[in-house]
Design a protein around this nucleic acid. Structure first.
Lengths: 214, 214
DNA sequence: CCAAAAGTGTTTTCCGTACACCCATGC
DNA sequence: GCATGGGTGTACGGAAAACACTTTTGG
């Protein structure tokens, strides 16, 4: 007779900093996998809903709320050491890094890592990140999820850098603008913002701060 | 202190019969929801993987194996009567109805229902079916999952009826054929099959019986 | 010979892509 | 005045959509 599985909720938190897609990782202070980096997560508290657990982890680590958060997949084969196994309900979230205040704790160290140069990860977390990235790339194409990665007002160049860093390829400026404007997910505020030298850019905002499928 | 949630695995089983998309439902013999139709499912056995549990349910109800089976979503809000709540890991499967031999049991009655005329369902199962249908429609567009709904050899008209019944709209015969042939997911066997009156149709087969993304 | 289903091409429309120059500001 | 980033239009190619008639069989 096996014991019932451990129930954990794990949240892949993505942000884009300066044209670089990054994920938040935690340096594990306890066994198993002490000292190894892992995606933030914790045990599901009995009586707590999955989305509440994911939101709790997200707020604990970053302080942000009201962002895009969606269930990703339920893995039963990430943890091969805990007796009885673990069911890991994974979520993914998109945050504007300017709104984030990383938790400062004595035991667990959270830090951003570029998706280009990930450290050695615990618990097969590579698969979870790869799957989250695939999902994010798909969502970016036919939804407005990018709203959750940017401040309320932003320039088209900032938006384009977000798309480019997630999709991993450069895009043509004119085609990009044509496309996002024709989708009608953003609109101009009429105000301008200077970006160092160069002509000041028009500021845009998303027409909806809720996820929309196109 | 709440009790830990019940862990169940639920499998939406779709088939297409005579141009009609149908789902397999079970008439519950026990409380809660006695006498009400529900999606087949059962408790996760400790030590059993999720996909094994889903496969077990599928084989129990239909006798088929080696079909398309994929995780759908994990719901925590379907069952509002069981103390501690239930985590329902849902899967969806696609079967060729000609290969199915429905379980004949004294207690649970399985039956096919058209997605057009569903009965009253237990446990918010409407949401699960709606989500499964949405996912199936998407998958149909950019994968070869239809292989799992048809016999090994089939006519292009049969294939088109499968697509039409899932997508819920009629398609142009010439455009449909051009498209599926250009995808190179099917190939002609060279043999013909008479379909009542009318000219006999060429039989085709899928080039792969494994899921392929296009 | 008539009903029933299979099979087949061309035209148009739309969307994605490629591509180069001028504009407004800071220094 | 020059460096920096913002902003704009057109032409091409491929895919999807619209559209009607001929072929082969059974009865």
């Amino acid at each position: 007779m096996s014991s019932p599985p451990t129930l954990s909720v794990v949240v892949v938190i993505f942000t884009v900093v300066d044209g670089d897609l990054q994920a938040l990782l935690i340096n594990r202070s306890g066994e198993p996998n002490q000292g190894v980096w892992a995606i933030p997560g914790g045990l599901l508290i009995p009586g707590e809903s999955l989305v509440d657990a994911a939101t709790r982890k997200l707020v604990d680590e970053t302080g942000v709320h009201d962002v895009f958060l969606e269930q990703l997949y339920t893995f039963d084969d990430l943890d091969d050491v805990t007796p009885g196994g673990t069911l890991a309900m994974t979520y993914f979230a998109l945050v504007d890094h300017e709104r984030v205040r990383l938790a400062e704790r004595a035991d667990w160290q959270p830090a951003w890592f570029s998706m280009q140069e990930l450290p050695k990860l615990a618990f097969n977390n590579e698969r979870v990140l790869a799957y989250a990235l695939e999902r994010l790339r798909n969502k970016l194409q036919y939804t407005n999820v990018a709203y959750s990665l940017l401040p309320g007002r932003f320039t088209l160049s900032q938006l384009q850098r977000v798309y480019e860093s997630i999709l991993g390829r450069e895009m043509d400026k004119r085609n990009f603008r044509k496309r996002v404007l024709s989708l009608e997910i953003i609109e101009s505020t009429g105000e301008h913002q200077a970006e160092g030298a160069g002509r000041p850019a028009l500021l845009y905002e998303f027409t909806s701060q809720e996820p929309i499928s196109l």
